[in-house]
Amino acid sequence: MELPGFVFYFITFFTMGGIYAILCLALNMQWGFGGLFNAGIAGFYAIGAYTGAILTAAGSDDHVGGFGLPILIGLVCAGIASGIVGWMIARICVRLKADYLAMASIGIAEIIRLAIVNEEWLTNGSLGISRIPRPLESVFSGRQSEVFFVVFVWIVVAVTFLVARRLQVSPWGRVMRAIRDNDAAAASVGKDVQRFRTETFVVGAIFMGVAGALSAHYFKFFSPDATEPLLITFLAWVMLIAGGSGNNIGAVAGALVIWAIWSLTEVVTQQLPPDWATRSSYIRMLLVGLLLQFVLQRFRSGLFPEKSPKLRVSDDR
């Protein structure tokens, strides 16, 4: 049966949207739960993407590779690699106050980018890694592979969501919120603020790495171009703030709504006369900006504001 074209548009839409949803959920763990201002998302995304790519891609003479590991193992390793880097950074940086952490993380993302561009033996430098497989390519080909991949991405989104939700309602999540809102008070009741912050930073970094690896499998090619901070770090932040930081449903909804604004504005501007082709692309950027302004102004605390989960023990106090 032949499905109409717009169905496949929504498949690419939800594939990209799903990858952003994972990034957004991961950022929500760091910022929404823990109040850690990570401005280096692109760095963790890149580490995950390259780890996944190197472990699963076909061999090449130009760089380390040819391990041909299964994609699931690649995804897990991408998370682990990104988490280890996140842990090292957290050890050094989580003691910094929010704005200083932002500066440090921007710097670290840039270090990661330069390392990737220069360590050609590992990453093939700026030429990028090609022939990265997609899951079950031998079974699904052509459009079927797109359908399968979007399902695969949303399974990962679901796993990420469940982890985030579980963390949020757990005692650990309550401590995180306490630290976020008043770290001195949390420390005064004996909570190890540093340790909790490190943990949340690492967990977030793990899922950012997974999102990166999924993109590498989706594009089947990965080069440093694809780690552009505007499209990763900035967009993920806008998505989370618009969706509602601290709320996991908000993180997913924000990712989809903002990606819809980003993507569908072009459908509107394409209706302009063809002579306007150059102009309409800039009008579209203007439209994206206006809609973002509208969402951010109209919904100060996001589309889905944070709700603290109810405590199960009623006589807690």
Binding site: G5, F6, V7, F8, Y9, T12, F13, M16, S215, Y218, F219, S223, D225, A226, E228, L231, W262, S263, E266, V267, Q270, P274, A277, S281, R284
Partner: peptide, 20 residues
């Protein structure tokens, strides 16, 4: 004409709109 912004993510999105 579709604007792929000369980057991977928006190009995928733009190409999908053209094709689908």
């Amino acid at each position: 004409v579709a604007d792929g912004q000369a980057a991977a993510q928006p190009s995928v999105d733009a190409a999908s709109k053209l094709v689908n």
